[in-house]
């Protein structure tokens, strides 16, 4: 009984230490899982979903000048509500019901790494 309690306390403490960092949203992992299928693993707009006749080119996130025109809020909105919310194609899906707010924030940060830009302030 005593040993069990000790173990439980230890496990709990370890969980406290590891928990938050293990759970923190990983922008690169999220990007590769959800976005790369269209935007490409490097963000160049060339994922495997982009086959012949795809109606519109997904944005190339490595184009610094174009990405600089978008503010963080613009990016956040289009991720959550999809292309039509920014007068863009519905081929850019709405992710608001799939991703937590922290996930979306981590994705915005990752897109800023890909474009090497800070965006419209």
């Amino acid at each position: 009984m005593h040993r069990f309690v000790n173990h439980a306390v230890l496990l709990f403490a370890a969980g406290m230490l590891l928990g938050p960092s293990a759970r923190a949203a990983d922008g690169e992992q999220l990007f590769k899982f959800y976005c790369a299928q269209c935007h490409g693993l490097q963000g160049k707009g060339d994922g495997p979903n982009i086959t012949e006749g795809f109606p519109v080119e997904p944005r190339n996130f490595t184009k610094t000048d174009e990405m600089n025109k978008l503010s963080d809020a613009d990016i956040r909105n289009v991720i959550q509500d999809g292309g039509p919310s920014a007068s863009k194609s519905p081929m850019m899906p709405p992710w608001g019901k799939s991703l937590a707010k922290d996930d979306v924030d981590a994705l915005v940060k990752h897109l800023r790494v890909l474009c090497k830009c800070k965006g419209k302030q």
Binding site: Q37, C38, G47, P48, N49, I50, T51, E52, G53, F54, P55, M91, P93
Partner: peptide, 16 residues
């Protein structure tokens, strides 16, 4: 259709 192939004409759908 951006992610699924379907019986279409011209554009046949995404492949993931």
């Amino acid at each position: 259709s951006g992610c699924h192939q379907f019986p279409g004409k011209g554009f046949l759908g995404g492949t993931n």
